[in-house]
Structure formats: C-alpha cells, structure tokens
Design a protein around this nucleic acid. Structure first.
Lengths: 366, 366
DNA sequence: GTCGTTGCTGGTAGCGCTGTCAACGTTCCT
DNA sequence: AGGAACGTTGACAGCGCTACCAGCAACGAC
C-alpha cells in the first residue's frame, strides 16, 4: 500500500529498495558506498535501479546529509582564454566523479568575489577553487573558517588557505627578460593590459630584472587597466614607441597583446626580430604558427585546472596531498620573434614554427 | 525551548521568523513573493533577515518545492572561444536573478548530450539551454516531455522544441560566398575543421552558392573532423593549394583557420587579397587588427547567450516571448583581405582595420 | 443582519534522503 | 566453548523549507 511514485512520477529510492527486496537505507548505501554491501544485495540493488531508471534526488540528499556534492569555482573572467583552458581542465577532472561544478565570475573584483563566496559557503560546497591569492580580509577569514577543502589556483605565494597550485608570475617574467638579455637586447619595453594582480607581478618581475641590470626606465613601460585585446596590443605598442623610439624588444604581458604588436610591426614595416624582438606570455596555440613564430612563456593552464580539481576531490574524500602547494612552473618557448641567431634565414612554409626551443624551466617540476 | 540553530550553526528561516515575530511561513513568503505581505511584516522580516545574515538553504527549498532554481546549459566545447562569448552572455543575464547556471560539456557528442540531459532533467531544472538542433531522437523526446522552458541556441531551424535563438549558418555562408563573387572571385575554396553540424551547414551553404553559380568543384573543399586551430588553418590551406593551385579566394569556416591561412600566405609570399582573398567566420576581435585586416561574417554570440538566458528566465516566470524563434542574423564585415577595390593602398599604422564596411545583414533583426 | 469576497496569516504535513544507533549473523581468537 | 570483533542490515527521526488549506478580519452587497 502507500504511493508507489512521487507525484511527479519520479522513481524514488524506496521503489528501488522494494524491487530489490532490501530496506531503503541499504539501497541508499549502494549509491554512496557500494563496498559496504554484500555482493548479492549489491547486484540486486544495481539491477533494480537500472530497471527503474533511478536517479537520486540531489536536493534531498543534500538536505539530509548536510552537505552537497558541488565544487564551487570562482574565476575572474569567462572571456580570457587563459581561464577557458583552466576551466576545461577542471571540468575534465570533475567528469566521472560525483561532483558537479558551480562556476561564478568575479569580473576581477575582490568585492564581488567576497559576495559570491558568502553565497557559495552558505550552500556548504564540497570544495572550492578560487583564483589567486589576493582575497579581501573578509574573504580570507571566511575561507579559513570553512571546513571544506580549498584550492587557490593560477599562482603560488606564501600562506595558502589550504592547497595551492600555480606558478610564480614574477619568476616567469624574470625568465622572459633573462632570455631577451641573452639575445643581446637591452632596451626592453613592457606592454600590459588588465593589470590584475598576476599581471602586476609579471610587471614586478620585469622591473626587478631591468633594475638588476641597471636598465630600468619608466618610459619603457606601458600599462593600462583596460581589458586586453589584440587591437589593444597594437595601440599600446604605438604608445610605447612614442615614449621610447629606440626600443629593441618588447615583453608582452599576454599573447593577445603580442599578436597585436606583431601586426603593428607589420604595419610599420618594423622587422622582427632584427629591429624589435617580441616575447609573449602563456603560449597560446597561435604563437607557434604566427609569422614570424612568436616566443612566449608557456604556462600549464589545462594541467593547472585538472590538477586543482583532482587534488580537491582527493582532499574532499579524505586523501590529502603530500604537499599542499604545487608549483607547475613554466617554460620560455624560444621562437623566431626573439632569436637573433637564426639558423633558418627564412621560415619554411607550414609547420615553420617547429623550432620550438625550450629555454628555461624555473620553479617546479616537469 | 527547542534548538535555536541548526547544528551547523547556520541561521534558519525559523530564527528569522521568530525575531520578526511572524510565522515561518510568512517569512518564507517574504523571500519568494514579498508583495503578498503587508508592508509592516515585510520590513520586519527584512530587517530580521539582515540582522541574522540569513541565507536560504537551497537544498531544502528545492526538496520542498519540487523544483530548483538551476538553469542547465549544455554546450559542446569549453575551448572554442565562440562558446565563451555565448557563456559570458548567459552568465551576465543570470546574474542578479535567482537562478544559477549549471554548465555541462557535451564534447560535440550527441550521445554524451543525451546522457547529460537525462541527469539534468532528473534534477528538475528551472530551465534548459541546449546547443543546436541535432539532438538524438531520445533526447528530443525527453526535451519535449519536460515541462520546463527550453531554449535552443546557436542556430535556427524548423520545429523548435520550445524557444530558439540563433541564425542561419547556411545563409551566412551563402552571404560570404556572395560577397566574394561580388569582388570578382570565382575559384573559391572552403577550409573547415571540427565539422560539427553548424560547420556542416556552412559547408552546405558554400556548396549551394558555388553550384548555383556553376563553379562547384569538389577539389575546392578541404574539411577535417580534427578540432580547429590556427596551425591547422595553415595545414589545411596547404592541402587546398595542392588540390587547387589556381585558387583565388578561401572561405574559412572559422576565424582561427582564417588566421592560419593568413600566416601561411605570409610564409608563401602570397599577396592578400591580390592573389588570394580570405574570409573568415564569427568575426573574433583580432580579425579587425590583423595585417591585412580580415573580412569575416560577424555573429552575435554574446547577445545570443544573453538573450537566450533572458528569454528563458522570462519564460520560467511565466512571461512567454511573443515569438519563440529569434533570428539574430549576421553581417559580412568587409575588410582588406577581400577588398580588391581598395580605397587605401597601404594601411595606416594602428586602427588600420577601421574600414569595417558592413555589407550584408540577411535574416533577422538588427 | 447575513452572506460572500478579498487580503493576509498560520498550522499541518510532508518533499526524498541519510545520520545515528541498534541488532543481527558470522568468524576468529583465547 | 565463550566472547569479542567484524561485517552487514534495518528502524527511526529528522534535514529546512514550502504546498496546501484553513482561519480570520475587514468590507461591501443584498
């Protein structure tokens, strides 16, 4: 007796249990911890669930268990293809797991981040992935008061809230400048947009390298808070040339800017790298197939997302990582745009960028 | 008597109600339909909720009300920047609403889509956004059996499940070819990658246009299922040149391929547009700042996402749109890469691509 | 004055699932 | 053989909220 189905017509756990000839709680265990069941009951419940097409009601589960199977992800931008790679990694790692991803966009505002964090935490997420290390004091306090695992991504720094995965933007920028120094460049400009904390640290690295070499000059820097774009790369480079006409190289804070600089050089008939060398940041796919091929600092974005989600899920399930802070490092991918000692005087058609020479791998593993 | 707080220390609705001196149900109404309360109670509940920092428990709400405030979004790719624009629109539109976005990646597999759909529907989403019109029969049946509003995005076609927003890829491709015909081109090649249904329809449009003009030739087509990239554009163009050395224009199924073709032409010292004209698809930001600037078919991706989410939320709340199918149209953005009749013989530095001439706006509004 | 109507409020009874604890059968140890 | 230890199972009582319906006051129509 009693209703067989919920009024919405959905199958409930009780139906599955009844068909399998077990109690609801045993059926429940099957979905959460199958090993706790005897093989006989396990197969019975399994086939009953299959036969009925049972899908657990997540809301009921969350209410009863006082926790969700949601991983919250806070990122500053959906547009930036840097984040789309990270996200892909996160989604890939979450696939097949019981956890679902809840994404929110802070739009590069730590106040917005704080607001979103409050909402997220109220729903008791299973875990949290947050971008960067520059939270508000309030956010920081909330994160530390939470008992769910947390991974900070995109960069590494002191005092992780919990786990941390990324690389040193400061070191990466220094490595880029060191590479240009190695090619004989001295008047190296900096072009940056958006100027979020990570881009700021790249600028810091650039400044430190230049100062150490006694080559620092404020006129070599063009930076704006405007969101980045290829077009903006050309505009900023134009500004930079006006300030420093005797420039011999440019470090671009990202690859879109670098592509914009490349095109602007084409317009002005500036030879790359003979007159001006270019180095970008992130090593997006197109860098290797541009003409000339563009040197860039490769960052492991997909791997970062994937590893962050994997670490997080492991931590949620009680498998804490051996080391909570993971430095994924970077590589300077030397290509034609910064190679004065060119072995090939003219690029061959197709696959020209093949000469991807790995130059540096500071900080972290490989 | 009775517990004041849940064991997790969270504020519940009952606490808010008590402080406000009303019954829990009245407090509940305040959050869902404030107009139903008298002004006096409304302010009392409001200040009580504020004072306690109350945040509703979504799981309990979902369980009790038998519905969620989740909008499910199924897209085929996270990498493709076409989708990141759409997603940004969706997230922007959902912000400030009570609805949250649940994103899943079908990886261009309609079987995977069917699987995800089953999971989504079991959780009774408030609404659903799905990509394209090529669902499996099973998926289609599930979608039609569901009572929540559904928006199909990215393209338009016959028999919408519910609402639909997009444009005709077929017409857009025909417009691209018509533009090239207008410039005097005849041997027009097609370069395509990924070859998902929408790219396939672009190819169909290309073929129809060429056949109508009596210019169709199978050797003018290079298409692969491989995921798209700039590098691949160069490779495919190389293949195309091998098949059809007397080519005078290329229609690229997307802008990344077009950029790859541009670079390959540079490598081969093929003059654009004098020897070969190029037209891309989507009009990503960089197209206008490349050298030469690249003609492309502009699609309204952000607007598509934003409008889809807005329409969906309106429909969820009972405000059905006047017309369920919305054609957002497209525009051929004529630039240097396809303009033989160039007014400017040499592009000026910076902002060179300014000469964005709008050529066509078939299908839909503006 | 009686009846219906409207606007607001509250009580009751779950939504579907899991935490806790108790109970059972079996095995292994001393 | 007795008892502890383990593995497996089930009963009960909610999780925090809302659907549903009843109740009540204020008002107007007859």
């Amino acid at each position: 007796m009693g209703r067989k189905r919920t009024k919405s017509g959905k199958i409930r756990l009780a139906e599955v249990a009844e068909l399998a000839g077990v109690s609801p709680i045993t059926a429940s265990r099957f979905f959460r911890n199958p090993e706790a069941l005897s093989v006989a009951k396990r197969t019975r419940v399994d086939s009953a669930a299959r036969e009925l097409g049972y899908v657990p009601n997540l809301a009921a589960r969350a209410l009863a268990s006082q926790r969700t199977e949601v991983i919250g992800v806070l990122i500053p931008s959906l547009t930036n293809n840097v984040f789309s790679d990270v996200l892909r990694g996160i989604y890939d790692a979450s696939e097949g797991s019981r956890y679902s991803i809840q994404l929110s966009n802070t739009r590069y505002s730590i106040l917005q981040e704080e607001k979103l964090l409050r909402i997220f935490l109220a729903q008791k997420p299973a875990g949290l992935i947050v971008t960067g290390i520059d939270q508000t004091a309030e956010s920081r306090a909330m994160l530390e008061a939470t008992d769910c695992p947390i991974v900070q991504i995109m960069e590494i720094g002191p005092n992780p809230v919990d786990m941390m995965i990324g690389f040193s933007h400061y070191d990466a920028a220094r490595a880029a400048i060191a590479h240009l120094f190695g090619q004989g460049h001295r008047k190296i400009g900096f072009v940056g947009a958006r100027m979020d904390p990570r881009v700021q640290r790249r600028l810091d690295g650039y400044q430190a390298a230049m100062k150490d070499a006694g080559l620092f000059d404020q006129r070599l820097i063009v930076a704006t808070a405007t969101p980045t774009s290829v077009t903006l790369g050309g505009t900023l480079f134009t500004d930079l040339l006006a300030k420093s006409p005797d420039l011999d190289a440019v470090f671009c804070a990202n690859d879109d800017l670098a592509l914009g600089v490349l095109f602007e050089c084409r317009r002005r008939e500036i030879a790359i790298p003979e007159q001006i060398a270019i180095i970008g940041f992130n090593d997006l796919e197109f860098m290797a197939s541009a003409v000339p091929t563009l040197t860039s600092v490769r960052t492991n974005r997909y791997e970062m997302g994937r590893t962050a989600a994997t670490m997080l899920i492991d931590a949620i399930e009680g498998r804490r990582p051996e080391r909570p802070v993971l430095d994924l490092g970077f590589k300077v991918m030397e290509r034609q745009s910064s190679s004065l000692r060119r072995s090939d005087s003219r690029p061959a058609p197709t696959g020209a960028g093949a000469a991807n020479k790995m130059v540096a791998l500071p900080s972290g593993h490989d």
